[in-house]
């Protein structure tokens, strides 16, 4: 009973803030609403006994929102920030795409068979995650790190190259 209530409250919070984020015309407001949405998602992780994932969600996603806001402000070329996140006029195609996505996802969720796991949640989830990352999946883990490093080097070269052409 209790988890259902918590899930319902969190869902209302998440969907409400997500709608506010999409409907807001101010880029900075959108970013703040997005941070609130991510906090709600972290709450969902907590109800699933995934405390570590919830903390990662807060640290990485909510923490990085401030960076996103700075970029949003710096890259906005409009004089008035309160009209920086505008709507476009393609209402029909938007409705079609989102309705199709909604129907497909809903149908998949309703028709698929769910297998509730019989495993109980370990006392501490941090140790098993570290074990998986550093033993069984160390190569994908390191590959992801390499890809991120390459992306970072690329970004630095792009930023530096723009300066060289003065």
């Amino acid at each position: 009973m209790m988890p259902t209530i918590v899930f319902g409250v969190l869902s209302v919070i998440i969907i409400g803030f997500a709608l506010a984020m999409v409907l807001s015309k101010n880029l900075v407001h959108s970013a703040i609403f997005m941070a609130a949405t991510f906090v709600g998602v972290a709450g969902i992780y907590l109800t699933l006994s995934a405390g570590f994932l919830a903390a990662v969600q807060i640290l990485i996603y909510v923490g990085a929102i401030s960076i996103l806001m700075v970029f949003g402000v710096m890259l906005t070329r409009r004089g008035d920030i309160s009209a920086s996140n505008l709507f476009n006029k393609r209402i029909i195609s938007g409705v079609v795409v989102s309705a199709a996505l909604f129907i497909i996802l809903g149908r998949l969720i309703l028709t698929s068979e769910w297998f509730p796991s019989s495993f109980s949640v370990p006392e501490s989830t941090v140790g098993p995650i570290a074990d998986l990352m550093m033993n069984a999946y160390v190569i994908p883990f390191e590959t992801a790190a390499l890809i991120l490093l390459a992306a970072m080097v690329g970004a630095i070269i792009l930023a530096k190259g723009a300066r060289r052409t003065r």
Binding site: I32, A35, G51, F52, A55, V56, I58, L59, V62, G63, I65, S66, M69, V70, E123, S124, T125, V126
Partner: peptide, 21 residues
């Protein structure tokens, strides 16, 4: 908490966003 130190790092990173706000 089981991951107390990590929790501290996570929640204290929220201050950045509030100061920017």
């Amino acid at each position: 908490l089981n991951m107390g130190l990590f929790y501290i790092l996570a929640v204290s990173s929220l201050t950045t966003l509030i100061i920017f706000m």
